[in-house]
Nucleic acid binder design. Structure first.
Length: 212
DNA sequence: ACCCAGGGTCATA
DNA sequence: TATGACCATGGG
């Protein structure tokens, strides 16, 4: 069985096992973007608390974040951890969005241009940029995270030393450029990892065991 | 009382 | 280019 066939088969098994995950849990594209930064190395539950606070205070809008002082923003997102760093990163991202004319303006850009621009912002790395591209702008960009790495390694589809772009190309070369497919696939990999890690003390950050 | 969660940057060698 | 330190809360 070839590598591409295995990747397609894996998706089928994950979908059959867990069903559609309906990511990203958010009411707007802007909420996705904020969540993508807040969830960096952080449990999603802690991010939800921070997002709720921004909603309750009516600040979950581009103009409001841009106008908000960093220390006040940091206080509001405290529950997501790394709050001083993340407040700065959110300000960087929102300031850039504002300078480009807002979400609707950059939404007209082609995917390559948009990705390069996002990666140029301090605090936005490959995974966060791709979260935004896939889940906020609905582009067929495959997200690589540590769970994905671990799963592929356990399946012996990779050695483990491949870099981000390399693994991303692997998926994108095997799968049709379907936004809905990439959306579900990444969410299912995360779901599977969490499923396997529950009550398993051996399961560390990159400790996903053999796949279904 | 640990351990880690849907990462990224910067300094060092 | 490759590790390591750092950021720092909340839930198990």
């Amino acid at each position: 069985m070839k590598r591409c066939d295995k990747l397609l088969a894996l998706y089928g098994r994950l979908l059959a096992a867990y069903g559609p995950q309906k990511w990203w849990p958010a009411e707007s594209a802007f909420e996705v973007i904020v969540g993508a930064v807040l969830t960096q190395n952080t449990n999603w539950k802690n991010v939800e608390m921070a997002i709720s606070r921004l909603k309750d205070t009516g600040l979950l809008e581009l103009e409001n974040i841009v106008a908000l002082p960093v220390d006040e923003l940091a206080e509001l997102i405290k529950s997501s951890g790394f709050f001083n760093v993340k407040a700065k990163r959110l300000k960087n991202l929102c300031g850039w969005l504002q300078s480009q004319g807002g979400l609707d303006a950059v939404a007209t850009w082609d995917t390559g241009r948009l990705r390069r621009a996002l990666l140029g912002i301090n605090g936005i790395g490959p995974e966060t940029a791709d979260d935004i591209l896939l889940y906020a702008f609905e582009r067929p960009v495959f997200i690589i995270d540590n769970y994905t790495r671990c799963l592929l390694k356990n399946m012996e589809l990779i050695q483990g030393k491949e870099d981000y772009n390399n693994l991303q190309r692997m998926f994108e070369a095997c799968l049709p450029p379907d936004n809905g497919l990439y959306n579900e696939y990444h969410a299912l990999i995360v779901r599977h990892a969490k499923e396997r890690c529950t009550h398993d003390s051996r399961c560390r950050h990159c400790g996903v065991e053999a796949p279904i």
